[in-house]
Structures are given as C-alpha cells and as structure tokens.
Amino acid sequence: MQLVVTGATGFIGSRLINHALSRGYRVMALARNPDQVSPRQSSRLHVEKWSLGDPLPAVMRASAILHLAAYIPTDFGDAHQAARCFEVNTHGALQLAMDAASQGVKRFVFFGSGQVYTPTSEPASETSAAFPVHRASYYLASKLSAEICLLSFGTANAMPVTVLRLASVYGPGMHGAGMVPTFIRALGSGRSVVIREGGRYRVDLVYVDDVISLALAAIEKEQAGIFNAGSGQACGSLEAAQIIAEALGADPNLVNVEGNGRDENVTGFAALNVAKAVEQLGYTPRSFRQGIEAWNAETVLSDAQSASVQE
C-alpha cells in the first residue's frame, strides 16, 4: 500500500512518514525541500520536489494522499494575505484532489483545523457551527473552504475524502513559539514561566502520534467524512505548565501566576468532541499528562541512544 504525503518536512508530516514506514507502507513524500525529508535511507520512501500548485507527480493508484501542506501567513490579521491563503489552501487543495482523481488515487485525507468552530463552552462536535471570525480568519476560512470543496469533489468523483479537524498538536519534532514548546524550553533549562490572567487560557492539546494513528485508521478502515482529532478535553495554561514541570522534574516554584483565574470569561478554544472518531475509528487519544510523559520518555531514550553511539 502506497501513501503520498504532502508537507513532508513539517512537524506532523515528518512524523507521519516515520510511522507509516514502520507499519510497512510505501511512502512518496512531496516537499519543497527534498533534502530535508528523513529518513532518506528507507527503500520504501521515495521523495519528490513539489509545491502546492505544481502538477501532481505520477502516483498512479496510490492508496491515499495525506495532504498536510498549507500556506500559513506570518501575520494572521493581515487582510492582504487572504488571497494567498485561498489560492494555496483552498484552490491548491482542490487542484491536488483533481490531479489525484485523474490518476486513480483511492482516498484523500485532508488535515484541517479544529479552530474553525464557533467558540462555545461545550466540546465542539463535527456538526457544531463553524464560523472562524475570532482569530486567524483568513487562514481558517481558507481551510474551511477547502473542506467544503474537497468533500463536494470527492462525492461527485467517487474518491472518498476524510477531513481531520486538528486541535493544537504537540509532541516530538515540534518547534516554534507556542505555549507547549515555550514552557518546555524554559522549565527544562531552569527558567521561570509566567501564567497570565490566572491561567484562564484553555485549549485542546493533542499528541502528534494520536493524530497520525487516527489518519492511518481512517485509511485502513476506509472511513470518509469529518472527524475531530483532539484529546477530547481542554487544558488550561496553568495546568499545562504544572504538568510539564512535573514531567521534567523542574522546581514547581518556577511556574508563576499573574492575574485572577476565577473570571468566567475563559479565553482560548473549546475542547473537541471526539466521540465520532472513537466510535468509528477506534480512536484512543492520550490526556495531556500522558502525552507529555510519552514525549519525555522518547527524548530521554533518544538522548541515551545518542550518548551510546558517541561512546
């Protein structure tokens, strides 16, 4: 069974390729920078230079395309970025699906965003209202538009489309200035972190391997439609910092809180209701504590293996 992965050098894409290869899949990785794709030594991995908007290379009758590549603007609030978002994220995804269908690709898996939902105090299900006007509207609207176009095209052309609406993904290989890597870098080096507004910020944090397992399950179980890919529960910033400090063995006093967390106006994003994925795809997401422990254990093991090689 062959999978085609776009966005192959990204945080999720590179991890996905490793998991797919370990399960015995053949993988074609499509990337703007092919030299950055790893592990290059696998005989079941083929890498092609490709960017969204380019014609799809020959992938005749691949089992599925897993589409992760996207245009992410540097300034989410810049209206001048809207056209590019829709050109790449919506039209580019649709063109990719059209190319895939013409080559007989059997399935299409699109990685969307769980932040498209209208803010609510209850966990959002796949049928909850989606209206992303509170943050990153141009980017999120382009991702939501891509979902609509892909599902419509797939239905009309007998190519099943699976949409995974991702919560905030974390885990090995991630980078950037998000809440989780920021806390890990600071607490891991003995520096303090400041939790603002009393820790009112809450978000559904999902471990990267759980997202990957869900994507592969959708292919293996041949399930189309929209599925939430979250942990099923929102985690507050204070709780997240405390869990990370405990996992790293950091001094808990490094976690400092500013402001009042008793305000009823919780900020952030609602949890994603994952009941559909649990029922139809056997999804078993980790809690944030379990995910951080898994990440920490892998990092310790990786460090130990590196030290052993050097010796």
Rank of each mutant, 00 (worst) to 15 (best):
R191A: 12
S192W: 03
V193H: 08
V193G: 05
V194W: 10
E197A: 10
G198D: 00
G198T: 00
G199Y: 11
R200Q: 12
R200S: 12
Y201R: 11
Y201P: 00
Y201M: 07
R202N: 00
R202D: 00
D204P: 02
D204L: 02
L205M: 09
V208K: 05
D210K: 07
I212E: 04
I212M: 02
S213E: 13
A215G: 12
A217C: 08
A217W: 09
A217Y: 13
I219K: 13
E220K: 13
Q223S: 14
Q223R: 15
G225C: 12
F227H: 10
N228G: 12
N228D: 04
N228Y: 10
A229F: 14
G230Y: 07
G230C: 09
S231F: 09
G232Y: 09
A234G: 15
A234F: 15
C235W: 14
C235I: 15
S237T: 15
S237L: 11
L238E: 12
E239V: 14
I243A: 00
I244M: 09
I244C: 08
I244P: 05
I244W: 13
A245I: 03
A245D: 04
A247E: 09
G249E: 07
G249T: 11
D251P: 06
N253W: 00
L254T: 00
L254S: 01
V255Q: 01
N256H: 12
N256L: 13
E258H: 06
G259W: 10
G261K: 03
R262L: 06
R262M: 03
R262A: 09
